[in-house]
Amino acid sequence: MNGAHDVGGMHGFGPIDPEVDEPVFHAEWERRCFALSVAMGAYGSWNLDMSRYARETLPPGDYLTTSYYEHWLHGLQRQLVEHDFLSYDEIEQRMRTLQQASDHAET
């Protein structure tokens, strides 16, 4: 299936910009997102092609303007919901709870 991810041969993405002494991860959430994806993948409810497809369901505009591990996060969340591990409602609710706890901790 083609889509925004199928960039081979396209023009206009600008220069390649290698980072000197690049760290493996650029933020703590990337570490957790990576590990969660690998750990949950081990259940075998989905394979690698299904994971990639889930990432590719990001709307094209979002796919091209979000980072690599944001693609993973989108894919992981979608797989978890589709395979009944979690629901969107409980994810949103937990986000609100965590945000409130964080706000509380700051004051």
Partner: peptide, 17 residues
């Protein structure tokens, strides 16, 4: 807050799982 939607979402997934 300094917590982005992305950071919150990852934390929420980990905490639920």
């Amino acid at each position: 807050s300094h917590l982005s939607d992305t950071e919150l979402r990852v934390r929420a997934l980990e905490s639920l799982l």
